[in-house]
């Protein structure tokens, strides 16, 4: 048991990642659009995104979520879907804002880390949503269970660019 905990702590401290893609959309169900840069606002979310607190037109219209100001997804999951399930899921299709590479998202719940010049705190793992299958016409719900990305709060805002580093604090 101790061994597992220390291994987890190690993973959580030793990684180095990078931002590969940035996406946002202003309203529920609308396609995500790719951007080279996003503006992160501390305590609220991404400028112009559906989950920006105070904007409230996301999937749950009347439920701004303190812990879902920005969402992340692993590039490695897209590769695993292609390799293990033969499903081509594109970075604009998983509906999370930031596609990262080299970041162990599932180990970061409860931790703070640096995302470009911003600091975020991971609140919980994202859960896949059935409507993603409806939108895409691809059977991705089951393969995405337990690797559907990470929801975060923005502790310190700033500009986030494709190519920025993602690092433990």
């Amino acid at each position: 048991m101790d061994g597992i905990v220390s291994e987890k702590t190690q993973i959580a401290a030793s990684w180095r990642g990078v931002v590969r893609f940035l996406h946002k959309t202003p309203r529920a169900f609308l396609p995500m659009r790719e951007f080279p840069v996003l503006q992160l606002i501390a305590g609220r979310g991404i400028e112009g995104d559906r989950y920006l607190i105070g904007h409230e037109t996301g999937f749950y219209s009347h439920k701004p979520e303190e812990g879902r100001q920005i969402t992340l997804f692993e590039m490695e999951t897209l590769e695993a879907l292609r390799r293990d399930h033969g499903i081509e899921l594109l970075p604009e299709e998983h509906r999370r804002n930031v596609t990262v590479e080299g970041v162990p998202l599932n180990h970061l719940v409860g931790r703070r880390f640096r995302l470009g010049e911003a600091i975020v705190e991971a609140t919980r793992l994202s859960t896949p949503c059935r409507h993603i299958e409806e939108i895409l016409g691809k059977a991705v719900f089951d393969p995405l269970i337990n690797r559907s990305g990470l929801n975060c709060k923005i502790i310190a805002g700033g500009t986030l660019r494709v190519g920025d580093a993602v690092r433990p604090l």
Partner: peptide, 9 residues
Amino acid sequence: MAKPIKTVS
């Protein structure tokens, strides 16, 4: 109570 948006506006 949270009310899901079910339609595209």
